[in-house]
Design a protein around this nucleic acid. Structure first.
Lengths: 364, 364
DNA sequence: CGCAACGTAGTAATCGCTTACTGTCGCCGT
DNA sequence: ACGGCGACAGTAAGCGATTACTACGTTGCG
């Protein structure tokens, strides 16, 4: 009857439970559970009877009941600004892969850059009892916000889960977080140095939300390189804003119109570079002949631009992988030799990728 | 060591429960639950006491227990090949947004194109009691496989959840699935017609897994256009394979070397077009002067290519939104007027976007 | 003054599964 | 013949919420 009702989707639609299966196979619920989990000996004949009952009833275990009764929820959560942005998409892919290798499901949340949504999602994932919550991307440099994150990191930790900061600074010395960083400052330093070496004295730094740690770090590297080469820092050459092609295009178009002088553009990331390239093109300027252009992140699109974009390579997918590897012990599989210094946090290297969008400055 | 560190804050680490909160606030667990859900009157003073206890204990409800005891799990699952591929990323974004508007969390699974993983994920999401499972992208045309999907659709449906087929054909007349399609065949028809109109008689169709419904449909539209214009179908001009830039590049390079003649390339999707463009460039052929090139999907990158890619626009994000809207009633919010014909499935239109990669054929 | 209505709070049954304990039974060794 | 052991299977106690009932003290009104 139950099954007939279920099949015929009569009003009496109820999912089959272990008990139903047990009844049908004429065994106890414990036995059914054992067959399902295969972690306890069950006589062959019995097992087969149970398996058949499961099939006939279309039984599917309830992961919630299972999580409640015993083991962990076997999920990891990742919080990003936007799944479509390649920067986040690649990190997400790394997280997803590592999670799935560790037998976990991956829950993805998008904040669209709103810190409040971000905190709300951490809570939500905590409620879901995720084994790990990976917070990706630059953080807003706000005292109160950092405190909120720290509180959640502690709550999560107290419950046996971990908060992993991926590509963002720590929120406090004694806060129990894990972290996977990349050398943001160093990449920017190297890139600026490259530009400087090519003779570009006036470099326009374009894009990136001003209050984001990522922006702060990249600009820091940029300035350090300038200083090292004795090039004075010109505030009017730094224009922060957003990480989108639209911003790069709009702002650069305005700046070009305003007559600002510069011979190279250091786009805060590749997306901004895409917009910048278009603006330059529309203004009739050739890259790199008239103006040099460089990006950051080395997303695949950087290679299809013409000229091919010189940029800073960031091991995005690897960061995602490491994030879960750090938080979920079973995920380690191999890689333990150099894992040693991980100890709660690690920093991956970045390096510049020289392609065609930067050339030596033409002497006017 | 890691263990020790984890346990550093006292060995007795146990998450607080409603009972603990109740004890601390000197009320019953029922009252705590009521305060938490705010769906039952609780005296102001009592509420405040409970809220304080919650704060002091760092209490976080257990979503699993909640899901088990009462309402649904409030999650929707989405299964894609790869989060990084823009085609899937955009659909995923639509699903994520709609889910989050409907107050649901979104679980993302990546199959890397493996049908077995796909089925496994449907099961996993079913176990998680997801309200809806969205299966995205072309399906392998395999009888047995379709039967498996159908079975799961029925199981899911029997449990009150829905399987949504997004961008793939139905698996059977009476199988309880929802579906969000786009006019695959029509887009290909229009694109080929456009190419034909420009005088291209020999069009190379390049890419796409041969056993995928998407490929089948696109080729069908392509052939229909050829027939309509009385252009004979030449099998040697159809080269299926994969949906990646790498495939487009490699295969086209080979074909070019082999001396195959054609004046236009219809890439199975924009990714393939990217690779094709590079191959053409490397072979010293100018696009569109020497060879015309068109793609499919209209991902953002299509606009940054030079020449800008002519392609078929597919409302990816909208598909994702609709998928959730169809499966999760509460998600409807507005939009009910034209929702009427939805009735378990809808097809979104596609249209070609003419840019610069296609030109009239030069008479040799 | 008595009683229904109301506003709150508590009791306890569930939800579906896992698992620590308890058997039960057949067979082996001595 | 008998204690003991190994291989299975069953019982039932949770896991952490939600919620249908029940209970109790005020009020308000007839």
């Amino acid at each position: 009857m139950t099954e007939a009702a279920a099949a015929a989707h009569g009003p009496e639609r109820r999912r089959a439970t272990v008990i139903d299966v047990a009844a049908r196979a004429e065994v106890s619920s414990a036995t059914v559970s054992r067959v399902l989990n295969g972690n306890y000996p069950v006589a062959r004949a019995t097992r087969e009877r149970v398996e058949e009952a499961v099939r006939e009833l279309g039984y599917v275990v309830n992961a919630h009941a299972r999580a409640l009764a015993g083991t962990s929820s076997r999920t990891v959560g990742i919080i990003v600004h936007d799944v479509v942005d390649p920067f986040f998409a690649h990190i997400a892919r790394g997280v997803e892969r590592a999670a799935s290798e560790a037998g976990r499901l991956c829950m993805v949340c998008c904040t669209h850059g709103d810190p409040r949504r971000e905190l709300a999602f951490v809570d939500l994932l905590h409620e879901q009892r995720a084994d790990a919550v990976v917070l990706v991307g630059g953080a807003h440099s706000d005292r109160a916000y950092a405190r909120e994150v720290a509180r959640r990191a502690r709550d999560l930790h107290a419950g046996g889960a971990r908060l992993v900061l991926c590509g963002r600074p720590s929120v406090g010395r004694d806060v129990p977080t894990l972290s996977v960083e990349y050398d943001n400052e160093g990449g920017a330093f190297a890139l600026t140095d490259h530009l400087l070496t090519q003779g570009h004295g006036r470099i326009l730094y374009l894009g990136g939300p001003p209050d984001l740690s990522t922006t702060r770090d990249r600009i820091a590297g940029h300035r350090r390189a300038l200083e090292l080469r004795g090039v004075p820092y010109a505030p009017e050459l730094v224009h922060t804003g957003a990480f989108s092609p639209a911003f790069g295009h709009r702002r650069l178009t305005e700046l070009l119109a305003s007559g600002l002088e510069f011979s190279a553009v250091f786009a805060a990331n590749d997306m901004v570079a895409i917009g910048a390239l278009q603006a330059l093109e529309e203004a009739g300027l050739r890259v790199p002949d008239d103006v040099s252009l460089a990006g950051y992140d080395d997303v695949p699109t950087a290679q299809v631009l013409r000229p091919r974009l010189t940029t800073v390579h960031v091991p995005l997918e690897e960061m995602g992988r490491q994030a879960v590897r750090l938080a979920v012990p079973e995920a380690e599989a191999e890689a333990d030799a150099w894992q040693q210094p991980a100890e709660g946090g690690l920093t991956l290297g970045t390096h510049i990728v020289v392609r065609d969008s930067v050339a030596a400055r033409r002497t006017p």
